[in-house]
Each structure stands twice: as C-alpha cells, then as structure tokens.
Design a protein around this nucleic acid. Structure first.
Lengths: 238, 238
DNA sequence: CCGGTCATGTAACGACGATATACGGAAGGG
DNA sequence: CCCTTCCGTATATCGTCGTTACATGACCGG
C-alpha cells in the first residue's frame, strides 16, 4: 500500500485546511494528525509547498471533474453561466483551497488551473462556432476568468456582506454581455454566421470614407469579404 | 526624531519588499538592513503583520493620494475609467504590495482599502446624481472593484502574456457598460460600428478551421481585421 | 541467505517570530 | 542639582518552525 499513506496525508491535510487558515497549519500539525513523522511527509511531498500544491491540485481536480461531469447542454451560453456559478460556489465551499490557488501569484503555475482555463476555452469555441462571440476565444478567456476570480475572492472575503447580494450574477452578466452576442440574428449556426458577418462588415465598411486602410488594403479586404459573403453553405469543420 | 526610526524601518522594509517575495523577507533581515534590533521593531509595530500592514498602508496611501490628486474632471465616467487604469497600474508597479493587500482574505480589513472603496463610491454617487447609473452605487462598488482586482491579479501574475493585451480595457468597459448608462453620441454610430463589426467577424472567423480561404489569405484578412478592430473610437486604455 | 531499494522513525540543526529584562537618556517637578 | 518617570533601544533567550542527516525495518530478486 504505497499510495495509501500519501493519500492519507492528503486527506488529513485537507481536513485541517478546511477549518484552519493555511498559515496556521504547520507540518508538525499535519504529521501529528496523520500519525506519521516529518520525514515520511517529506519523502512523499518533498516540501511543504509540495504538500499544499498536491492538496490544492486534488481539490481542483475534483472541481474540474464535477465541471466536466454534467456539461451536456444544448446552449453553450448556459454552460458558460453554469461554469461561472460552479466556480463561485467552489470558492465559497473551499475558501482555503481557493485562496491557495488563486490568491497569490502562483495561480497560473497550477496545471489544474490551466486545465480549467482550457475547459472555458472549449465552451467559448463552441459559442464562436455558432457565430455568437464578439471577441476571439483567446481574448474572452482571460476576460471572463479575471472577473470570475475577482468576484470569488471578494465573496470569499466577505460572504455575508449585504452589499454582495447578487454580486456574482451582476458581474457575470456584465462580462458575458460584453463577450457574447445577446440576440441571435436570423441565420442560425455556423454556416450562416460567417457570410452574414462578412456582409455586415462590407456594409459598414462602405459607409466609411476614411477607414484606417490604404486604397490597396481596402480593395484587398473588400475582395476577401466578398468571397466570404458569397460562400455557399459548405460544411466547415466541427 | 521620534518617528524617524519608525519611518526608516518602513522605508527599508519597502525597499526589501520591492525585489523580494514577502514570504522570503524575515524580521531579522529587516533589522539587519535597518541597523536596528528586533525589540525596536516590535516596539514600533508590535507584530510582523503589523509591520507589513504599515508598509502596505503607506504604499496604498501614496496611491490614494495620487488618485485623489488629479481627480478634477468634468465627467465622472472619465474619472472612473482613470481610476480603474490607475488601480491596474498601481498593481503592476508594486506587485508585492498589491498581492499583500488584495491577494488573500485580508484585503477588506485594511483601512486604506476601505478608503479606496469610498473614493470609488464617491465617483459613483456623482454619476448617480447625473442619472447615469443603472444600479445603486452600493451595488456598483463591489461589482467594479471585484472585476478590477481580478484583472489586476491576472495581469500581475503574467504581465507580458500576449493573451492579456488589452485585457484591462476589455474588462473595464464590459463592467462599466453594465453599470452606467451609455450615452450614444449622435452621428457617431457608424464610426463605432466598424471596429465592432470587424471584431465580430474576427471572432466568427476564428471558429472556422476551413474557411474558403488559403492560409495566406486568412493571415492577411486577420491582420486587416485586427487593424480595423483596434481603431480608436472612444476611450483608449493602454 | 544476501544486497539493495523503498518507506518510515529518531534526533537534531538552523532560522524564524516573539519577549522578558535591563540599560540609557531626555523631561519635569522638587 | 538631583531624583523620578517614561520612552526607545540592546542583550539574551524561548518555543516553534521547516527541514534533513542518519538509522531502522520491510520487502524482493538472485
């Protein structure tokens, strides 16, 4: 049972961390609670930070599993909102873990956090495939994520403040409104979205006498847009 | 010379903190650098956290002073945007201070942070007096603040990530759009529509892996669209 | 039965945050 | 002028922290 003690230490540390601030949990406390000695702990985790990272990674993995678990929805926007709410709820349920992961500067170093961003990216790509995104997924990811983390930290700091009632929903809808197209025009799906958007840009472009383009660039752009606008309903990638 | 040693310790600590992580700065380091002994430090600050709080408070006070310094503007919305930008810039200029103040759970306990929130509240009240607020100032304060802190933390963690270009402006405008009534300057509709439409096409394009374009054409189109999308329309950020 | 690797325990080191105690000098009343 | 009081600083030390050198035992292929 090699992995048993390791998992046991992980569980005990998580228990201690559930109701004690991270700076007040010492290696000795963990050892005493897990009924092991210091070198055992260091043999498995090498470092105190290694232990905390492992604990945080496990907590985050569980959150990710839940996130990816019930994801099948027909509307990616609903998934996005649900993902936001789950993120907030995770922070409120495991405040110590959350601050451990997102509070400091080390947030992005966590591979689990990277994976979480990738899940977000996937949702946005699906939204973009339906032509409902106002910015590129690469731009939308840090936008949504930054706002979500900031909101969660605020709520974790003062969960019961009356001023924070409805805060999450407010920030969420504000950010999403700036990123996804709210009302869907006639053409549904990815096939119609590309030519429609290209046509819209063509129209807008024609109304501008002085766009920041040279005459040649403008000609080139018009030609490309025309090609896109007249695209037959060819089935693009999925 | 009563406050001299105290101020000296403060300055030295700030210097050490400017290029050393907070967890790597010990009381002994500060004492050695300031050429004093431990009891002197404890006499003035009582605690290590007391020292760090005092240092952070001083840094924040300086930021607040600058914030309140050049505030006279005719449009409160401009003040709001400028305040956001200053907050971000402060975080990027003093990353250690910033994480010290806003990273953990202790942010709201800082009296200086409270004062910063009050400045924000004041701006929003002025905006509300002009009937340009969509929510109450009490609701708007945590909304804006949460998003701003989250954005700053993201930028502090990875300041030079290409994915973070324009992030601050994007989140800022998203949150502000949801909180203040956007007045549409007459006749400027098409000017603003051009970058928006270009951005929309850019986003739609990113979802298509096989558009009816060659790789070179796609690259060219993306470049032109990016130029159009970044056309300055209203308030440039950075 | 042996040599080696792995997991764990014993005991200790150095650095840390924090303090009890004492010294020294300036302020002020006699 | 001296004595008291109080504040700032220094000496020396405490208990705890994260960490590790070293020893012990269990298991396993040869």
């Amino acid at each position: 049972m090699t992995g048993s003690t390791r998992q046991h230490i992980l569980d005990v540390t998580a228990d201690l961390l559930r109701d004690t601030a991270v700076e007040s949990v010492s290696v000795r406390d963990v050892c005493q609670a897990a009924k092991i000695t210091a070198p055992t702990l260091y043999h498995h985790f090498g470092d105190k930070r290694g232990l905390l990272d492992a604990v945080a990674a496990e907590g985050f993995a569980r959150y990710l599993a839940e996130k990816q678990g019930h994801e099948p929805s027909e509307d990616p926007l609903d998934d996005l909102k649900a993902g936001w709410d789950r993120h907030i709820r995770f922070g409120l349920t495991h405040p110590v873990f959350y601050v451990l992961m997102y509070g400091g500067t080390r947030a992005r170093e966590h591979p689990s956090a990277r994976e979480g961003l990738q899940v977000l990216h996937g949702m946005l790509v699906r939204l973009a495939e339906q032509g409902r995104l106002l910015v590129t997924p690469d731009d939308a990811v840090p936008t949504i994520h930054s706002a979500c983390v900031g909101t969660t930290l605020t709520l974790v700091a003062e969960p019961d403040a009356p001023a924070h009632a409805g805060l999450s929903r407010r920030v969420r809808d504000a950010v999403l409104a700036a990123v996804v197209k709210q009302e869907q025009p006639a053409g549904q799906g990815t096939d119609a979205a590309l030519p429609d958007t290209a046509r819209a840009l063509l129209a807008t472009l024609s109304a501008h006498r002085e766009p920041p383009l040279s005459a040649g660039e403008r000609l080139l752009l018009t030609e490309l847009l025309t090609r896109l606008a007249s695209t037959p309903t060819g089935g693009p990638a999925d």
